[in-house]
């Protein structure tokens, strides 16, 4: 198996050089047309996709943070508002309660005053009526005494009649 060796590493071979030039030229042209555009397109689209996804994720994260802040703010506002409303309703209830008590007390006082007045009026009326009956009875008695002499039996009868008259007057 005799192989023909080049005499020196620096021996120049024009065919080798020409083949290298031509083959590389063909390789370059074919690759530039069929290979590299697809690869660079794939790389660029992948890069854009990743960039877009990262940007979307960052935007979503920013949105989520903003939404969380907004939510927390609203929650805080709601807590404050509800506390305020509770306080206001408590104050209102207190006020209403106090008003009701005051009103009731006033009404009670009025009723009491009115009842006292009515009572006083009824008492005066009763006393006046009693006086009127007493006067009329005395008058009756006096007139009867003046018409005849009164015996013990008459006296008893007159007293009984006067008392009966008095009782009748009281009933009227």
């Amino acid at each position: 198996m005799a192989l023909v060796l080049a005499a020196s590493p620096l021996d120049f071979d024009l065919i080798g050089l020409t083949v290298a030039l031509i083959v590389f030229a063909v390789f370059f042209i074919l690759s530039a047309k069929l290979v590299w555009p697809k690869i660079t397109k794939g790389l660029d689209e992948r890069f854009e996709k990743i960039r877009h996804e990262i940007e979307s994720a960052e935007a979503a994260s920013r949105k989520a943070i903003a939404a969380q802040a907004e939510f927390e703010k609203r929650l805080q506002d709601a807590r404050e508002q509800s506390a305020r409303m509770i306080e206001e309703s408590r104050e209102a209830a207190k006020k209403i309660g106090a008003d009701l008590v005051a009103k009731n007390e006033a009404e009670l006082s009025d009723m009491k005053t009115r009842a006292m007045a009515d009572l006083e009026s009824a008492k005066e009326s009763a006393v006046r009526e009693l006086n009127d009956h007493a006067i009329s009875l005395a008058t009756v008695m006096a007139s009867k005494i003046l018409r005849r002499e009164v015996g013990a039996t008459d006296q008893q009868r007159l007293v009984s009649e006067s008392l009966a008259e008095l009782g009748k007057g009281s009933k009227n």
């Binding site: 120049f12 024009l14 080798g16 020409t18 083949v19």
Partner: peptide, 12 residues
Amino acid sequence: ASISVTAGLAIV
């Protein structure tokens, strides 16, 4: 490892 080939590439 051939100078002819690398020379061709260098010309490119």
